[in-house]
């Protein structure tokens, strides 16, 4: 029971991370295209200024929870996915410092350089997380003798498809965010980007659902317990709702996109159960929530910690989000007490 609860929490932490940092990635990629001058680029960056750092902590928590609850999975997941994780790490480091460095020297070339860094190193993790999770859904090539893959094993068609899928999810998510967090022309361009990205997202989401049938065993759980089909169904409905809400309210469209990302992650997670990382060559070696977990004692202690503190975290993060809910306007950028980047 504890193991299953931790499995759900594990999935939830990753899902919340993608929901939150997802729009940061989208914004980081899009800022080169929806903003035409330095002032507009600053507007874009300042929409995520107060929150990107807090969003990234969900990744650290997801990593820490994997370590605490499923240490064997943590050990294998991180050493098997060595190179993509290093690239993700380097990307997050470069993206993080570029927000701080960019405005600190008043030179056109300096700012343009960091703009490009923000773009490239938002793009890379968006795709790499997709590739990593696509391969986890599919299973990694390991058996009792260890790991038999390389970086190129991960670049299989299904992994790449999931990479593109994640990228489009985050692009749509970021564009919707900018549609109501930026203002004037930037918001208009973001709205148009969100509308143009949506059909692509629809196509790739469809391809993902179809190829999942052939590339993975995720659907077995759904066939055995059809009630769970409700989760992918909500994902599909949210995707359609984004389209509908784009006509009336971009805030509602963004919330639909949040639900979409959460349910997409859970579509995969439910299919994996009780595996955390299946083996693609020897099912007997699958890393499951039972054979790779911590002791019941540790799971219990950590559950108490989570039950007490995560609601507090959610409460003050929501408070902070509400505090900065207003769109960034051009005149705000004149005032460094409002727009610090």
């Amino acid at each position: 029971m504890l193991n299953t609860i931790w499995f759900a929490l594990w999935g939830l932490l990753w899902a919340v991370y993608f929901m939150l940092d997802g729009f940061d990635f989208g914004v980081g990629i899009l800022h080169l295209f929806v903003a035409k001058d330095d002032l507009e680029r600053r507007m874009v960056i300042n929409t995520i200024g107060p929150v990107w750092d807090g969003n990234e902590v969900w990744l650290i928590t997801a990593g820490g929870a994997t370590f605490a609850a499923f240490p064997t999975t943590y050990a294998y997941m991180f050493s098997y996915l060595y190179t993509p994780l290093f690239l993700i790490l380097a990307s997050l480091i470069l993206r993080g410092v570029s927000f701080e460095f960019r405005g600190k020297i008043e030179l056109e070339g300096w700012k343009r350089f960091w703009d490009f860094v923000i773009f490239l190193f938002s793009l890379m993790p968006a795709i790499l997380f997709g590739i990593a999770f696509g391969n986890i859904f599919k299973g990694l090539p390991f058996d009792a003798n260890g790991y038999h893959g390389t970086l190129f094993t991960l670049l299989n068609p299904y992994g790449l498809l999931t990479g593109v899928f994640f990228l489009l999810l985050f692009l749509e998510h970021g564009a919707l965010w900018l549609s109501f967090k930026a203002s004037n022309k930037v918001a208009e361009r973001a709205k148009s980007t969100a509308q143009k990205t949506w059909p692509l997202l629809l196509i790739v989401a469809g391809l993902f659902l179809i190829f999942t049938k052939w590339a993975t065993k995720l659907y077995n759980n759904y066939i055995n317990h059809p009630v769970w089909f409700i989760v992918p169904a909500i994902a599909v409905i949210s995707l359609v709702l984004i389209r509908i809400f784009m006509k009336t309210s971009y805030v509602k469209a963004f919330i639909s996109s949040c639900v979409l990302i959460i349910t997409v992650v859970f579509t995969g997670i439910i299919g994996l159960y009780p595996n955390l990382i299946p083996s693609s060559i020897d099912p007997a070696c699958n890393l499951t929530i039972f054979n790779s977990s911590s002791s019941q004692y540790t799971l219990k202690v950590m559950l108490i910690v989570v039950i007490i503190f995560v609601p507090i975290v959610i409460a003050y993060q929501l408070w902070a989000h509400m505090l900065f809910k207003e769109a960034i306007k051009k005149e705000d950028l004149e005032d460094k007490e409002v727009a610090a980047y």
């Binding site: 902590v57 650290i60 928590t61 990593g63 820490g64 929870a65 994997t66 370590f67 605490a68 609850a69 240490p71 943590y74 911590s294 540790t298 202690v301 950590m302 910690v305 989570v306 503190f309 995560v310 975290v313």
Partner: peptide, 11 residues
């Protein structure tokens, strides 16, 4: 043992 304080640190 070691994973717990790390996860608590983040939380």
């Amino acid at each position: 043992i070691f994973g717990s304080p790390l996860a608590i640190e983040a939380t």
